[in-house]
Simulated scan of single mutants.
Amino acid sequence: MTHNIDIQTLRLFLKVAELGNISRAADALSLTQPSVSRSLKALEQTLNAPLFYRTGRGVQPTAIGLLAIEQARKIVEGCDGFVRDIRERSGGPSGVVSIALLTAYMRAFAADLFDEVQQKYPGVILRMVESFSAQHEEWLSSGQVDIALTTQYRALRVANEDVLAQSDLALIGQKPLGSLSQDIPFRDLEDIPLVLPASPNGLRVRMEEEALRQGIRLRIIFEADSIEAQLALIRRSRCYAIWSEHLARQENYVNKLYIRRIVEPTLPRYVVLRTTTHHPLSRAAREVAHLLRKLINDAHAVR
């Protein structure tokens, strides 16, 4: 015997599972509670299995219900992907594409990316947000953004990644420390007042690991995650930040701040373009990622 289950019933089932309450699910779907209850009962009868335990506070999935949730989610995502792909192939890429950019890259490339997308793919709407690398990774894993730029400080972690930029870390400050073009050994940072991001920022972790390896203690006088806060402090006080050389050039601070590359060892910073694995990437997201990659690569090529 063939049993037909429509996609809307599966969406309803997943919404109840997500909210754990039939009434809230009914409100979210603009349906009545009795109609949702009837649909669930019909689904359980078709599957010949109880999908939820009814409790005083709502519902909880049974063991077979958990399996059904997993399978239903795959079916719904597959159906959505089918509709999206066919629509995109019948016309141009369309839909909303969410991007998380690092602060400096937001300033440098957001407007150009918007112009490129508007010109080539007018059906695509960009949604741009900016934060720090760790937040971007969380957004990617949860599917809140499709594309994100992240930073890494170890070559082994970026071996198979889409690296858009690589630059050594440098000491940045308002007051000179030695010759403008002179490199500074990492060990000499021990007595220099530093402004660094708070842990567990990747840069902070890398700096502290190297300090531990060399048996020195970094003199951190202020913690600030944002570039703006660090810049304000190093302009006012005799203290120093740790940025990548490329970031200093990108922000046009080469002629305004003293920049000394850190050596013994050099500490590279990688900017990586990553895409979410939470859901299939739409054609629109793939095209936007390509445009962003080209914009950044071209900008680096002319420097």
Rank of each mutant, 00 (worst) to 15 (best):
T2K: 09
D6T: 13
T9S: 14
L10W: 11
L10G: 07
F13Y: 13
L14V: 05
L14M: 07
L19V: 00
G20F: 09
S23T: 07
R24S: 04
R24V: 00
A25P: 06
A28N: 08
L31R: 10
Q33I: 05
S37T: 07
R38P: 03
K41W: 08
A42F: 07
E44V: 03
Q45T: 09
N48T: 12
A49R: 15
L51E: 08
F52R: 05
R54M: 06
T55S: 10
G56I: 07
G56W: 05
G56T: 09
G58Q: 01
V59I: 14
A63K: 14
G65T: 03
A68F: 12
I69W: 14
I69M: 12
V76T: 05
G78D: 14
C79L: 01
C79Q: 08
F82A: 11
V83E: 15
D85K: 13
I86W: 13
R89S: 12
S90G: 12
S90N: 13
S94E: 10
S98Y: 03
I99W: 01
L102A: 00
L102P: 00
Y105M: 10
F109Y: 13
F109N: 00
E116H: 00
V117P: 01
V117N: 02
K120I: 13
V124A: 04
R127I: 10
M128T: 01
F132P: 02
A134Q: 06
Q135K: 02
H136Y: 08
E137V: 05
W139K: 00
L140T: 01
L140P: 02
S141I: 12
S142C: 05
G143M: 10
D146P: 06
R157K: 08
E161V: 06
A165L: 14
A165W: 00
D168N: 13
L169C: 15
L169N: 05
I172L: 15
G173F: 07
I184P: 08
F186R: 00
D188L: 14
L189A: 07
E190L: 06
P193A: 10
P193I: 09
L194A: 07
L196N: 02
P197Q: 07
N201I: 01
G202V: 02
E208W: 03
E209A: 13
E209H: 08
E209L: 14
E210H: 14
E210C: 10
L212P: 04
Q214D: 11
R217D: 15
R217T: 15
I221F: 11
F222E: 08
E223P: 02
A224L: 00
D225I: 05
D225C: 03
E228M: 07
E228N: 12
E228V: 08
A229C: 01
Q230W: 04
Q230C: 10
A232V: 07
I234P: 01
R235V: 04
Y240Q: 14
S244C: 12
L247T: 06
A248I: 03
N252D: 14
Y253T: 03
V254Y: 06
K256Y: 08
K256W: 06
Y258V: 02
I259T: 09
V272T: 04
V272A: 06
R274F: 03
T277W: 06
L281E: 05
R286M: 11
H290Q: 13
L291C: 13
L292P: 03
R293K: 13
I296C: 09
H300I: 00
H300R: 07
A301Q: 13
A301I: 09
A301E: 10
V302R: 11
V302W: 04
R303G: 04
